[in-house]
């Protein structure tokens, strides 16, 4: 158990703990901010696994943009003052489903990858990721851009269909 692993365990516990707090926090703004802590801890984990580029992109995109968008949506849609989450009777069903999903995913991961070590360490610099993205993974990359474009156009169409054209 060297220093890196200790820090990794601490960051992982931080990520899981703040994720639980994000889920259970009645104040929605607090939930969004706990999400920031979670994503920051995950970025820290990425750094420890030498995936630096992904870590900083995680901070730039997730923390800097996605959480800001979440808070922005919160501000636009909540009635002023009432920022508490609504608690309905469905929460037990949701908890059971979430547990089933977590157990299922965890079982799949363990069954698929338990005991394996990653061969040939690849340092996650921008150069190596760029190379992989444009040689081995070009097709999924282009398909993803197509999906993003479709989402963008769809969002514009959806937001316009309410108002006059």
């Amino acid at each position: 158990m060297n220093g890196t692993e200790v820090v990794f365990v601490v960051l992982s516990l931080l990520a899981v703990g703040s994720a639980v707090l994000a889920m259970t926090s009645p104040q929605l703004v607090h939930a969004a901010l706990w999400l920031v802590v979670t994503l920051g801890a995950v970025a820290g984990c990425f750094v420890l696994m030498t995936a630096e580029f992904v870590a900083w992109v995680q901070v730039l995109v997730y923390v800097g943009s996605v959480v800001v968008l979440v808070i922005f949506a919160l501000m636009l849609t909540r009635q002023s003052g009432r920022t508490t989450a609504e608690v309905t009777g469905n929460r037990w069903t949701a908890a059971v489903l979430g547990l089933v999903a977590a157990v299922g995913l965890g079982a799949t991961m363990v069954a698929g990858f338990a005991g394996e070590r990653i061969e040939g360490r690849r340092i996650g610099t921008a150069a190596s990721i760029g190379e992989a993205l444009f040689t081995d993974w070009v097709l999924p990359f282009e398909i993803l851009s197509g999906v993003l474009l479709a989402a963008l156009v769809g969002a514009i169409v959806l937001s316009r269909s309410g108002s006059d054209r």
């Binding site: 630096e52 923390v63 943009s65």
Partner: peptide, 24 residues
């Protein structure tokens, strides 16, 4: 840092949250 530019841009984007938290 090898990714100095990204690091600086990411740090600046976190600073956005501060004013937002103040506003909310």
């Amino acid at each position: 840092l090898d990714l100095g530019l990204f690091f600086v841009l990411a740090a600046m984007s976190v600073g956005v949250l501060g004013t937002l938290m103040g506003g909310l």
